[in-house]
Write a protein that binds this DNA or RNA. Structure first.
Length: 108
DNA sequence: GGATTGACGTCTG
DNA sequence: GCAGACGCCAATC
């Protein structure tokens, strides 16, 4: 059945994140009306194994790479972010508010 | 089928 | 302003 799971929803939003930008769980949760940021974290956790989903662009509201431990290797998350132009230091996004991206920015 | 877990966020003290 | 507790809903064991 073509029943879109939460994963697909978070998937879609995560894939829409432009390079050099980072999104937060709360923003995605709010955009998808999930009601809980945990849903986003859980979805990404089970989805980060998928390809084409820049899960490394999704951080918590503090700009911390919370899920870096799930990456292989964990430093890969920071490496990918830096490779896209997002400066990461101390496992946190530098100028987080400047690189912060919201799904509503797509223009709907 | 039930209990636990999970990349967080928000509220209250 | 900081710290701790709760809530949220679905998937997995």
């Amino acid at each position: 059945m073509a029943k879109p799971n939460y994963q697909e929803l978070v998937f879609d939003i995560t894939r829409l994140i432009p390079p050099g930008r980072v999104s937060s769980y709360g923003a995605i949760a709010d955009y998808l009306s999930l009601g809980s940021a945990r849903m986003v974290g859980w979805a990404l956790r089970t989805s980060f194994v998928q390809d084409g989903v820049p899960a490394h662009r999704v951080v918590n509201s503090k700009g911390e790479l919370s899920g870096r431990a799930n990456f292989t290797p964990p430093s890969l998350m920071q490496k990918l972010l830096e490779a896209e132009g997002v400066k990461v230091e101390n496992d946190r996004v530098v100028n987080f508010k400047e690189v912060f991206w919201h799904p509503e920015e797509l223009g709907w």
